[in-house]
């Protein structure tokens, strides 16, 4: 009898574990700004996909490089062809953890500061990162907000000699995403 209860509760746990533990978005926003005295080059992408498993804090985010929109004329071509080489490296990813998330009560609305730890891969190169993220719990959704800097050298992005003063070595990146509870299919 005891065993039966145990097994049932185990399966029940598995079942619960599979539900509403994951938050997802497909319309996350990422913005970058390369500021130099000569020229500001920026771009944005609102098709960032991310998933967060709040049961263990695991997180994966995927940014499709070709989905960036650059308002400067011909900049998108340079961005894709010369710098990001998006035919060879079509996406940037973050695979890691938000460990503090497991300790949060996500049923209560509020603002938290958590850390994102993991591997950021851009242009086929990976770097370990540790980054503060503002997390707002509102109406059952998780709104993540994060500003950081990317040193393009770290990701093997090279700038031709003659345009060195037009492309920033350190690019400012802003990320905003609203993750909603994932519905099981």
């Amino acid at each position: 009898m005891k065993l039966k209860i145990l097994i049932i509760s185990l399966f029940a746990f598995m079942f619960i574990n599979g539900q509403a533990q994951k938050y997802i978005t497909k319309t996350g926003y990422v913005y970058f700004m390369s500021h130099t005295d000569a020229i500001d080059i920026d771009g944005s992408n609102n098709k960032v996909a991310a998933i967060l498993d709040v049961s263990n804090g695991e997180m994966v985010a995927i940014v499709l490089i070709k989905a960036f929109e650059l308002p400067l004329a011909t900049a998108d071509k340079h961005f894709n062809e010369t710098y990001m080489e998006s035919d060879d490296h079509p996406k940037a990813t973050f695979i890691g953890k938000l460990p503090e998330v497991t300790g949060l009560d996500l049923t209560v609305e509020g603002e938290h500061e958590v850390t994102a730890q993991g591997t950021l891969s851009i242009h086929g190169k990976s770097q370990e990162i540790n980054q503060k993220v503002k997390l707002l719990v509102k109406e059952g959704k998780l709104m993540g907000n994060c500003d950081f800097k990317v040193n393009i050298d770290d990701y093997g992005i090279t700038v031709p000699e003659d345009v060195k003063d037009r492309v920033a070595k350190v690019v400012d990146v802003k990320i905003k995403m609203t993750l909603e509870p994932m519905k099981n299919k």
Partner: peptide
């Protein structure tokens, strides 16, 4: 099962993502 769920987080996300239209540049 728990282990698999973690490994599959990326696969799950890829599964959820709609296939994008990739325009040819340059």
């Amino acid at each position: 099962w728990g282990m698999q769920a973690q490994d599959d987080l990326e696969a799950m996300l890829l599964d959820e993502m709609e296939e994008p239209v990739e325009y040819t540049f340059g």
